[in-house]
Amino acid sequence: MSNPSTGTHPDTRIELAVHLTEAPGDPGHVFLLRASEGVPDPASTVPDPAAALAAVDRFGEAIFFPQPGPPPICTQQYGGPQVALVDGTFLGREVHARFSRTDGCEIARWRALAPLFGAAEGSRGEV
């Protein structure tokens, strides 16, 4: 489907690199998620590309590009030392996002995109 005002087609590609560390000083892991038109590319290296793509399709817009507003009130809980840096493109928009498990809000963001972070301890939402 094209954009009637510009005659262009919307960009349906997703290309995200995830740099995941499980603890400070850990060499970490790198995963890739590539997809076009809702189909994971065989070059994807996340453990479950279909689940990662489903999570990104469902939550990516809100998490990668949050709307301005008052700062959230977050519970003071610690979910672990894991950190994930996500860079790339999401439907034609640049993504540069940092995820951690340092409070309730960050844990919720982590859980929403857990399949994108692979099999790291805590990546499935355990607290």
Rank of each mutant, 00 (worst) to 15 (best):
I14L: 06
L91G: 14
G28F: 10
G7D: 06
G80W: 08
T8C: 05
F59Q: 02
D48E: 12
A50H: 14
R13M: 08
P27D: 01
I63C: 02
A97K: 15
P27E: 04
E15G: 13
P10D: 03
R98M: 14
V56Y: 06
G92F: 15
D41L: 06
E94L: 15
A62P: 00
A114H: 00
D87P: 12
D87Q: 15
D11K: 05
T45C: 09
P10G: 04
E126A: 13
P40G: 11
A84T: 11
L116W: 00
P81C: 13
A119Q: 06
A84C: 11
P68F: 10
A43G: 09
L33S: 06
E121W: 06
Q77V: 12
G80P: 08
G122V: 01
A120M: 03
R34H: 12
R109Y: 10
L113C: 01
R34E: 13
S44W: 01
A52F: 06
P66R: 03
A35T: 05
E22H: 04
S100A: 15
A112Q: 06
E121L: 06
E94I: 14
R124D: 14
G25S: 11
V30T: 15
T45A: 08
F99P: 14
F117C: 00
A54P: 03
L53G: 02
V46S: 02
Y78N: 06
P115C: 03
A120P: 02
T21C: 12
A23H: 11
R109H: 13
I63M: 03
R93G: 10
F90A: 12
P47E: 04
